[in-house]
Write a protein that binds this DNA or RNA. Structure first.
Lengths: 223, 223
DNA sequence: TAACTTCGTGCCGAGAGTACACTAACAAGT
DNA sequence: ACTTGTTAGTGTACTCTCGGCACGAAGTTA
């Protein structure tokens, strides 16, 4: 792991990413073990790393993601830039943080050693200011859920309406009426039927839908 | 003006702020002349400056604001971090940008030499990537107007309902019905009458209102 | 074929949103 | 003092969206 030089006139710049996914009906974030004595031992944090002088923060983020994980096809957006003096007790580091979402269908379960998916309701205290960072990310996720189609990045490309509804219920923590959810969703004209059905169910199979566009759309989906 | 050292392993970090105010019923942004040949001459930009190693970006922002302007009591929120390699053609600088709002009642018209308030609809091409930065700021302002009480930071502490409505009309560009606006606003319970009236009007004086709290409140004020 | 599970659909009442026009208060000019 | 000009301030009726609610349909298993 690289280390910021001690005596520059400026702070080093890092990137960190809070990655969410849904595993077995539980919202989880990606954590990695940090081993940097004396301040950070036996503690976890979001993954990230330093930004080199000749790369953008986005390029640095993708570089660290490729190096440290096998995740692909993430949705990524910039979150907030943290600059408290003591946020990293070892060096002066300003961190540009990102929010990441990865679909259930991607191969999220085969993580390298030292990484794990942690349910958001069992989150331990994190290293650096990553607990704050997580809070900002979770808040952003909840906010965007209400007025964008961001939920699409947590679902497989094709999904049932019940699965989509479940994403909303998981993240907001509120129960949603099935009929009202469908009425609202279909009126927004953002999803379409694929014509295919679920297979291998032990009950009535549901129709599979897909989003009309893979872009984020701004729409008031919840009130 | 300070300059980033040429041969560090890391980028320098700067802060820049897009400050809005309303002057004579026109939404304006604060611009300063940039004079850094050969790349940036006879061109304007938002104000900002470098971040020292031992200060937060917020501290650096306030320092540069104090040095370069006499503005006080600004509302400030972080906007976005720009890190394109060539965004500053002279040095490698990553910029943490901020959105600023200043009330009409503050002394906004006495600006130091080299600064001016520019109507947003007459904005010239700006130095660095500040045209992009402005676009992000304007978009954020419009967005937050709809679901927060952010308009309060563009008005004097006491104001008439017509003045408040005017802020919304100026920024969204849409006409709003006076009766519906008042009905909605008053139902939200965020403003209260002061009991005082406008003075020195050549027509019927309006009642003066004030926001119940000086904090930003999240509420859907427009649809 | 009976039991079980999830899918998929419609109506109705309440509240919010939208469109719309006139009288009231004040100042200035005659 | 009265007329004119300008902005303040207010209520109603219609429409539409939101939110609550229950049951038959389609498939699997025993």
């Amino acid at each position: 792991m690289k280390q910021a030089p001690a005596n520059t006139r400026f702070a080093a710049v890092a990137v960190d990413i809070v990655i969410f996914t849904i595993i077995d009906d539980v919202l989880c974030v990606l954590l990695g073990i940090v081993d940097r004595p004396p301040h950070y031992q036996n503690i976890e944090a979001c993954i990230g790393g330093l930004v080199e002088v000749n790369e953008t923060t986005e390029a640095a983020l993708h570089r660290h993601l490729q190096t440290k994980t096998t995740l692909q096809n993430l949705y990524i957006e910039q979150l907030y830039t943290f600059s408290e003096i003591e946020r990293d007790k070892r060096n002066r580091v300003i961190s540009v943080s990102y929010l990441g979402l990865v679909r259930q269908s991607e191969d999220v379960t085969s993580l390298p050693e030292g990484l794990r998916w942690c349910p958001v309701h069992e989150l331990p205290k994190l290293a650096y200011d990553h607990s704050d960072m997580f809070a900002v990310a979770y808040s952003r996720l909840k906010g965007k859920l209400a007025y964008t189609t961001i939920a699409q990045f947590l679902l497989p490309k094709t999904f049932t309406l019940t699965e989509l509804q479940r994403v909303y219920e998981l993240i907001t923590g509120a129960h949603i009426d099935k009929r009202n959810f469908r009425k609202k969703l279909l009126s927004l004209d953002v999803v379409k039927e694929t014509g295919r059905m679920q297979e291998g169910m032990k009950n009535r199979p549901a129709a599979l839908y897909t989003f009309k566009t893979t872009k984020l759309v701004e729409l008031p989906l919840l009130t």
